[in-house]
């Protein structure tokens, strides 16, 4: 059974592409056959985040317009078994495809026996968004603990539900435990209370993401990083496993605790 999952957010820059890359790669690491579809036509980026930018020959628009066969456009990631990328076109715009064509594309990908088809949705609520959600069975909304991102997430949740994509799941990205502790950042509970939606995962604000993106290797493969662990947990939850949300506070050494107690009693 294949499942089409769209990763969306409304607001740009909250981490949709990074989330898509990590979820796709993480699912492939568990032995699933996965295709990542970059639906951000005109502003493609999933290829660089995945480190596959040098291998693009055909793209999504070529497939839709019949310039090539679907299999010719799929880039096989040689590092991770079972992982493929369908890149977006860079020289076209959102109107180059219609929701009906995207729906058809998703159906053809299902016939290729992918377990998961992950669609990286562009920012905004216009044509690109409508295209990206057209063939989806399930939606994941990415947000950060900021007023603007949460507001846009709320709007997107409404639009998803209006399109029949009920019960989208939330990923809270770039959470900073220290700021939450100080009361200077909304917590997981604050955000889920406002959006009234189930949380699929929480990803800490972690330097390892920047390093991973620099190298074109998704952080989910980094066994040392907090963000990598967070993505591996999300991948387990997508597959139905019940994994508790991790806490992101680093273990304090004895010296840290000692000094903390001196300077901040109570």
């Amino acid at each position: 059974m294949s499942e089409v999952i769209v990763i969306t957010s409304g607001k740009g820059g909250v981490g949709k592409t990074t989330t898509s890359a990590n979820i796709g790669c993480g699912l492939a690491l568990t032995g699933k056959k996965v295709v990542l579809v970059d639906a951000d036509i005109g502003l493609r980026n999933l290829d660089v985040v995945m480190g596959l930018e040098n291998r693009i020959v055909y793209d999504l628009v070529d497939v839709v317009e019949g310039n090539c066969r679907l299999k010719q456009a799929l880039i096989k990631d040689k590092r991770y078994n079972g992982l493929f990328l369908l890149p977006a076109a860079q020289t076209r715009d959102k109107d180059a495809v219609s929701p009906e064509q995207m729906q058809k594309l998703c159906d053809s990908l299902k016939e290729e026996e992918f377990d998961y088809i992950i669609i990286d949705c562009p920012a905004g609520i216009e044509q690109g968004f409508k295209n990206a959600i057209a063939g989806a069975d399930r939606a994941i909304v990415v947000t950060t603990p900021e007023v603007s991102a949460v507001r846009d997430a709320d709007r997107i949740i409404g639009l998803l539900e209006a399109s029949g994509l009920n019960d989208p799941a939330l990923i809270l990205n770039r959470l900073r435990a220290d700021m939450v502790k100080r009361g200077d950042m909304m917590s997981i509970d604050d955000v889920t209370e406002i959006l009234a939606i189930d949380i699929l995962g929480v990803v800490p604000d972690d330097e390892s993401i920047v390093v991973a993106t620099n190298k074109g290797e998704p952080a989910v493969t980094d066994m040392e990083s907090f963000a990598g662990q967070a993505y591996r947990n999300i991948v387990k939850r997508i597959q139905g496993e019940d994994v508790p949300i991790m806490s992101f506070e680093r273990d304090e050494g004895i010296l840290d605790k000692f000094f903390k107690n001196i300077f901040r009693r109570g």
Binding site: V147, G183, D184, M186, D190
Partner: peptide, 14 residues
């Protein structure tokens, strides 16, 4: 705490 300000503003906007 600034997060409470954020929450209150968000709730009203929403």
């Amino acid at each position: 705490a600034s997060k409470n300000v954020a929450k209150d503003r968000l709730k009203l906007v929403l």
